[in-house]
């Protein structure tokens, strides 16, 4: 009995150690992030007098899109000769606020970040403003009513993406007056891209009464849900002409469902998606996706220009839209070898 107790206490201690080890590990990385740049900053200022120091806090590495975004920012900073202090928030707001505070302490020239969530940034942004450091938002926005807290917001216009998708559909079916049945796979309910991509798409097709969204359901931006929901759509609706998916992953799942139903994706059911990940391009080059609206993560170059502009004291627009293309099957075939993410 006593022995068993000892073993019990031992396992408990071990697990505790493991948990705390994980915890302190986290702390260590943020500390490293905080300390290391300090050294390099001083070195940099000694070496070249006017090298711009840019502190950037990324959301995390939750998707291929995000990783491509990070690489683009790091590469462009190197090219532009900007000293980049990069910090990964691991999808936690508290980490991101810590990172922003450490940037302020280090007195970087410009701060950039992709907010993990929309709200709760006022205090830390005010601190940056008081310290006289301009802030650039990328990819996602904040809900602060005080727009003087940041210089500009650089990111995709999700409404425009939805619109582009809708415009292609209108063009594709301009010669017919027959009813075209559209099913929609929405992103995570309530998320900005889901709301905006739906809105833009609806706005683009609203003047064409024969284009009709017959059903719309969330697929949570995932392949598994996309497949499951599409299966149900196929059972409930006999005649589906077009699928509009808010991202490539859901479409990839839906393609499997369509194939399982004995139909040909891209031919029997035309498919429009947003994002442009590599797997999506692969499917498009095989003719299974008809139209991809790109949601471009490679805006590092644009970001560095904005940083330079801010330092030189140029007036920047509050909203900078990233450059994004659209791809048909043929264009996707050509572009596939050069896709980075």
């Amino acid at each position: 009995m006593r022995k068993a107790k000892k073993v019990g206490v031992l396992t408990l201690l071990m697990s505790l150690m493991l948990v705390t080890a994980c915890g302190s590990n986290n702390g260590a990385t943020t500390k490293e992030n905080a300390n290391q740049p300090d050294k390099t900053t001083t070195e940099a200022t000694v070496a070249t007098d006017k090298k711009i120091v840019f502190g950037f806090s990324q959301v995390g590495a939750e998707s291929g899109w995000r990783t491509a975004n990070t690489t683009s920012i790091q590469d462009s900073a190197k090219e532009a000769g900007i000293d980049l202090k990069f910090s990964d928030a691991q999808q936690k707001q508290e980490n991101q606020i810590k990172a922003l505070r450490s940037f302020i302490q280090q007195k970087v020239d410009v701060i950039g970040f992709s907010p993990v969530v929309e709200s709760g940034w006022d205090t830390v942004l005010k601190e940056a403003k008081d310290a006289g450091i301009p802030v650039i938002l990328t990819d996602r926005s904040v809900d602060s009513t005080d727009t003087s807290l940041y210089v500009t917001f650089l990111g995709s216009d999700f409404v425009l993406e939805g619109q582009k998708a809708g415009e292609w559909l209108v063009e594709e079916y301009k010669d017919t007056t027959d009813q075209v049945n559209i099913v929609e796979l929405q992103g995570t309910t309530g998320s900005a891209p889901a709301i905006d991509r739906k809105e833009g798409f609806e706005a683009a097709i609203k003047d064409h009464s024969n284009l009709k969204i017959i059903t719309s359901q969330t697929g949570d931006f995932t392949r598994a849900k996309g497949k499951e929901v599409m299966q149900a759509f196929l059972k409930a609706n006999k005649d589906i002409d077009v699928l509009y998916a808010h991202n490539d992953d859901m479409a990839l799942g839906a393609i499997q469902a369509i194939e399982a139903a004995g139909l040909k994706p891209g031919v029997d059911i035309k498919i429009i998606t947003v994002d442009g990940i590599k797997d999506g391009f692969q499917a498009a080059s095989e003719g299974k996706i008809n139209f991809i609206v790109e949601c471009n993560p490679l805006f590092g170059g644009q970001l560095m220009e904005a940083v330079k502009g801010v330092v030189e004291g140029k007036e920047l627009p509050k909203r900078t839209v990233t450059e994004e293309g659209t791809f048909t099957i043929e264009q996707a075939k050509e572009a596939l070898p050069n896709r980075k993410y």
Partner: peptide
């Protein structure tokens, strides 16, 4: 779950 998808309940109230 399947029923909800089939009868087209709006995602907001699913």
């Amino acid at each position: 779950t399947t029923t909800i998808y089939m009868i087209g309940v709006p995602p907001e109230i699913t």
